[in-house]
Design a protein around this nucleic acid. Structure first.
Length: 520
RNA sequence: GGCCCCAUCGUCUAGUGGCCUAGGACACCACCCUCUCAAGGUGGAGACACGGGUUCGAAUCCCGUUGGGGCUGCCA
């Protein structure tokens, strides 16, 4: 801790552990981190855990693991604000001694009763001249100077002026004796030698309060940090991202199979853009080109569709080994739709390149290859009924059974054999392959069929074709008796997965309790 | 209500007085490619909130209006 003797920037990310790690917090953390990396500065992580009512230790772990996942490694910390309360109290004593504070015993009700209908809302200064002593049950308020303005020199917005008359005598210490956010936050920034405060725009209105405290502690000539207030992240209603309605937990994106590199790339594009206009940017390019003064002023919508597209770009660029590795949580994890012992990575690897360009989130991978690792193919009832209602299906399956019985078992030969089947039934290959695809893979979309059958093997393919043929003979109404597993029951995290018209809708990420913003 | 911020295609943005009949990306539509679905290719539709100024000239500067948002807690 301490100042910045070398003159290099010291920034901090200061989340409070009151919920899942929020995408807005992640963006704030990223911009701090980018700034630090690009200036050779220091990135400090400080957990603001002084609200004992709302903090939980597992949220701290969540913050740490999400940051690690994103690669936002702190140079210092995590510090705990709760470890620094002695420092906060010492600062309070100094402020009290300097006459910057006064004690107040007003209840909320009393204040409301007195100020109802006031032109300027907020505390009315009732206790300011009462000369109350500090003591139990009495809050401490900051005596805001009358008249004049505080101007915040903001790197992204320019100078922002706040008339002091509009700032109430805010509470700095609760009647319980506990210091509040503006106090603790300011004192910590001071103690840690923070030179640049980069945070969400929602904190802009509290900035003059912090500045007042800073100056009361260090004098009017105090070297204040530079401020940079980042535009809010908003939902489709243009409101600040809400943990209630909006999918804001970084962890849920991780679980859906977004890649951290893509997530970081997308986050960087929210409120900033690369001078070249390129959008696919690796972290090195981000660090090299990022400038706080280039940050936009207006709120940005967190567009999952665009994030999903970008993720697809990253997924497709992975080499096969990296892709196979990245898929492991979904292919070998507890959420995999097949029994663990049936999964074989070498087999998966054969299909991987074909899967890779068909998914944009890793969570969609199992549905692309489950037909290989399940004993019976999955059953998409919509797909089956469209096959069942087509009179040609039976002929296709019969012809395919015959054609596949003796042909060489590789994709080109299967292609050729199936083309012959198509010709035999008088259909284009695209139409003719449908019954075979559904019979073999259970789905009407997926990796290329002939490669899929090649991997599945002749034995299993033929067995499935026969089963489908029998089911077809049994009539179209026997769906309930089918052996397959209904796709709808084991739908994994599926946002962004693509399986065509009849597909079951993708799951939405679970929204858990999340702090309003975090990262003071 | 008060204080503050913001305002280019549906979305993210480029644009810092003439290069703008406003560029890119996502999404959307059409076509091509094609064993499904994707990916890829080509093309299309789509925006400077409004009104005043300043200027030879404004998306770009100023003012106002309107609209949106944030804050207004003895939360952070």
């Amino acid at each position: 801790m301490g100042g910045s003797p070398s003159g290099t920037p010291r920034v901090r990310f200061a989340p409070s552990p009151t919920g899942y790690f929020h995408v807005g917090s992640a963006r704030t953390a990223l911009f701090n981190w980018l700034f630090a990396r690009q200036t050779g500065g220091t990135f400090v992580l400080r957990i603001e855990d002084t609200d004992t009512e709302r903090n939980r230790e597992d949220w701290v772990d969540g913050i740490l693991s999400a940051m690690a996942w994103l690669g936002l490694d702190p140079d210092e910390g995590p510090y705990r604000q709760s470890d620094r309360v002695a420092d906060h109290h010492a600062a309070v004593d100094r402020l009290w001694a300097a006459g910057a504070l006064y004690a107040c015993d007003c209840t909320r009700e009393q204040v409301e009763a007195r100020t109802a209908g006031n032109a300027t809302p907020g505390y009315d200064g009732h206790c300011r001249a009462r000369g109350l002593e500090r003591g139990p049950g009495r809050a401490l308020r900051f005596a805001v100077p009358q008249g004049g303005t505080v101007v915040v020199h903001d790197i992204v917005r320019g100078d922002v002026e706040f008339p002091l008359g509009a700032i109430e005598d805010f509470v700095v210490v609760k009647s319980s004796g506990q210091p509040l956010f503006v106090l603790a936050n300011t004192v910590d920034d001071m103690a840690m030698g923070i030179t640049h405060v980069i945070r969400g725009e929602d904190l802009l209105p509290s900035t003059p309060k912090g500045m007042l405290i800073w100056q009361a502690l260090q004098g009017p000539d105090a070297a204040l940090p530079a401020f940079a207030h980042l535009p809010m992240l908003v939902n489709e209603q243009r409101k600040k991202l809400s943990k209630r309605r909006d999918p804001v937990a970084v962890e849920s994106y991780r679980e859906q199979g977004f890649l951290p590199e893509a997530f970081v790339n997308y986050l960087a594009l929210l409120g900033w853009s690369h001078p070249s206009g390129r959008e696919l940017l690796d972290v090195g390019e981000l660090v090299a080109a990022f400038r706080l003064e280039d940050v936009n002023h207006s709120p940005a919508f967190f567009d999952v569709q665009k994030l999903t597209h970008l993720n697809g770009e990253y997924v497709r660029r992975l080499d096969v080994d990296a892709f196979v590795g990245a898929c492991r949580p979904w292919t070998t994890g507890p959420g995999a739709p097949w029994p663990a012992e049936r999964f074989d990575e070498a087999t998966f690897r054969e299909l991987a390149p074909l899967v890779q360009e068909r998914v944009d989130v890793l969570g969609a991978v199992p549905a692309m290859v489950d037909f290989v690792f399940l004993d019976e193919p999955p059953t998409d009832e919509a797909a089956w009924s469209s096959v069942a209602s087509d009179p040609v299906s039976a002929d296709v399956l019969d012809a395919a059974l015959a054609a596949y019985a003796g042909c060489a078992w590789d994709a080109p030969m299967l292609h050729q054999a199936t083309a012959a089947v198509a010709e035999q039934v008088g259909r284009k290959l695209g139409k003719a392959q449908a019954p075979v695809r559904v019979a073999v893979t259970g789905r009407r979309v997926g990796p290329p069929l002939f490669e899929s059958m090649a991997v599945l093997g002749r034995e299993r393919t033929l067995r499935r074709l026969r089963a489908a043929r029998e089911r077809l003979a049994g009539g179209v109404a026997d769906a309930a008796g089918a052996a397959g597993r209904d796709i709808g029951e084991r739908r994994g995290a599926g946002a962004g997965h693509r399986d065509g018209a009849g597909a079951v809708s993708g799951g939405r990420p679970a929204a858990g309790p999340v702090p309003p913003d975090g990262g003071a």
